[in-house]
Design a protein around this nucleic acid. Sequence first.
DNA 1: GAAAAATTATAACAGTCGTTAGATAGAAAA
DNA 2: TTTTCTATCTAACGACTGTTATAATTTTTC
Lengths: 202, 202
Amino acid sequence: MPAIRRADEKLRDVSRRMILDRTASLLVRQGYGTTSLRDIAQACDMKAGSLYYHFESKDALVEEILTEGVNRVESAVQKALDAMFDAAPLDRVRVAMEVHLRTLHDRSDYASAHIRCFSHVPDDMRRRLRRTRRSYDAVWAGLLEAAQAAGDIAADVDLLTLRFAIIGMLNWTLEWRLPSGAGPEEMADRFYRIAFQGACNA
Amino acid sequence: MPAIRRADEKLRDVSRRMILDRTASLLVRQGYGTTSLRDIAQACDMKAGSLYYHFESKDALVEEILTEGVNRVESAVQKALDAMFDAAPLDRVRVAMEVHLRTLHDRSDYASAHIRCFSHVPDDMRRRLRRTRRSYDAVWAGLLEAAQAAGDIAADVDLLTLRFAIIGMLNWTLEWRLPSGAGPEEMADRFYRIAFQGACNA
DNA sequence: GAAAAATTATAACAGTCGTTAGATAGAAAA
DNA sequence: TTTTCTATCTAACGACTGTTATAATTTTTC
């Protein structure tokens, strides 16, 4: 189907990836229940039945996307943190915010699809996704605990609430269009400034 | 249908309100596309066709719920602000956060349904909902401008970003279960402390 | 009580849903 | 070329969708 293709990658993998990509985009815009297999097939220049050569069901296709959504964010953040393992705790938090936000707004829609569709997906799928999330949650819990242990975060700040606040700020950006001129990194820095130094005059 | 009913309220209005309430609850849990009229009817101990006596279409029913969702939050916040019109700008912000969060987590699901379903609703409905949102956005813009004009918010803090951050923190609480023991008001206070004084040691 | 009005149920419509089995085309291997 | 495997299409299945016209029922009015 694609005109140009590296010799070492199978058509199978290319089509599979295309289906995943375009389905993710549809999921972001239309949601889980409103996106039909025929919608997906049309976006891939295919027929609905052909999708079953690559995926055993609609839910299997969706679940793979949403799972990859979390995993992409987690591995991007983890990679950035590993490259600065000896930095100051709060710097690590700031970088994690930047990478999280950048991954959310990059060209692919996997992470956005996860955020947009998570709560409306069938119960058993959501249960499995929740397990996948937990690993990423632990990354953040560790980051904030380290910063508080180092005395950089005030002792009376509840870390769970702080984590809610940070992730909420970042993920909620999907609901707005970011101010033109301010990329994800710039926005993340502004959020960092608000959450850690506060919006008030010091 | 309901066993007990005040003498001065019409059966029509009671049924209509019940349909709205229960549909809102379904929308929160299942989303727009996955909630069928037969689901709704069953939740109301009715048949799907009977819903058309009260609403001219599924979308009309949904739109009324989502619109009321914003309006409830706005009027609750506005009412609280009117009762403290001469308070310090930041106190007004803190109270707005509390009322917003409390309305989001009260027994009715209108505001939650709006937040959960907004992005997956048909395009024309979403356009109209966006107009409704604008009025509430203006309330927040005014609140923050006043606080910055009074010198309570640092001059170099971008107010649009701050608004994103605050609304994002508050609305994202729908995706977690709030820490047991901390009600909406307590959580709002913690968020206020984070956003305005910062999580760092001063 | 009967008559009128308001509210819900019934049953079907055309269309779409996820899914499947089998046919078909294309590329790779022989 | 012939054969074999890969990838997609076709056409249909039963179930479900929003919606409608009409009938039945309940509630209110007299």
